[in-house]
Simulated scan of single mutants.
Amino acid sequence: MTVTTHVPFGASLSHEAYLQIREKILRGQIPMGGVLSRRQLAEELGMSFLPVTEAVQRLESEGLVESKPRVGTRVRIPTPNDIRDRYIIREALETQSARLFCERASQLERRGLQDMAHRLDEEAGRVSPDPSSQYAYQSFHLQFHMQIAHWAGSTLLCEMLEKNQLLVFNWLFDINAESSMPAGRHTELATVLTGDDPDAASLAMGNHIRWGMSEIQEAIARRFSVSLPPIGRMARETPASQRAAVVKPKKQTAKKAAKKASKRKSA
């Protein structure tokens, strides 16, 4: 999966714009909830308005950004249910890739995965909150998981992971929740995947993916729900003219109530 601004030969301007805007989002230059100005992006990328608009529409169709009338376009803030659903789909695909890897991978590929896992855990111990450091680590983390799917020998699994942007969403969830894994987690995962038990490999991947999901849900909800209202629900005060038109119910005094009661009795 491409996560840098490297553009394939012959790619359209809209695809180039798509890659560069997505990288800005992944680097945190446009944070969750951040507004995307098509005209400003066109100026920054040195492009016309049209390819940038097409790129933003593609990002919107993938769920990374959202547009609403009178609000504009911004990086989408996921709800806890959004996060859960992404995890469910990712787990379904990656547990299968783990099973297939365990069954099919060559000895060379198994050693390659162990080496990647060891280097990834080393990087996890050195990564800092700096956006450049986070970007480098998350890039390598994404490559690690995609490599498992590739060595599993299923082109369709790789395409499904890429098409649904599942690892890109995981990247965004991690950096916005400031999540980090315990030391050695990827080495432990690789040890099981390079063994001879496909069921154990599938289970280990499921546990690996689900780890910390509830904490990430809560962290993102805490970070964004208070300071930023749900998109499309703009808080508007009732205009003074409308407030004046509201007819308030008349209050009954005790004296008037007693007089009415007396009349009813005499009748």
Results as ranks from 00 to 15, higher is better:
residue 59 L to H: 13
residue 151 W to I: 03
residue 182 P to M: 08
residue 259 K to T: 01
residue 156 L to G: 11
residue 45 L to Y: 11
residue 147 Q to R: 13
residue 2 T to F: 15
residue 210 R to P: 01
residue 135 Y to I: 02
residue 193 L to Y: 12
residue 232 G to T: 11
residue 30 I to C: 05
residue 39 R to F: 07
residue 137 Y to V: 00
residue 256 K to V: 03
residue 6 H to K: 11
residue 238 T to D: 10
residue 27 R to N: 10
residue 189 L to T: 04
residue 251 K to V: 09
residue 110 R to N: 01
residue 90 R to N: 00
residue 22 R to W: 06
residue 215 E to R: 14
residue 243 R to T: 08
residue 206 G to W: 15
residue 138 Q to W: 05
residue 251 K to F: 07
residue 200 A to H: 05
residue 70 R to L: 09
residue 241 S to W: 15
residue 249 P to W: 14
residue 40 Q to D: 15
residue 65 V to A: 02
residue 177 A to M: 04
residue 258 A to M: 13
residue 51 P to M: 10
residue 69 P to R: 07
residue 35 V to Q: 14
residue 62 E to Q: 08
residue 157 L to P: 07
residue 165 Q to P: 01
residue 152 A to P: 07
residue 75 V to I: 02
residue 196 D to I: 03
residue 127 V to E: 08
residue 28 G to F: 13
residue 29 Q to K: 12
residue 5 T to R: 00
residue 85 D to P: 00
residue 41 L to W: 12
residue 143 Q to H: 02
residue 67 S to W: 10
residue 35 V to G: 04
residue 73 T to K: 08
residue 161 L to P: 01
residue 148 I to L: 10
residue 175 I to H: 03
residue 10 G to T: 14
residue 36 L to I: 15
residue 218 E to L: 07
residue 74 R to C: 09
residue 6 H to C: 09
residue 236 R to G: 04
residue 113 L to G: 03
residue 265 K to S: 06
residue 90 R to F: 02
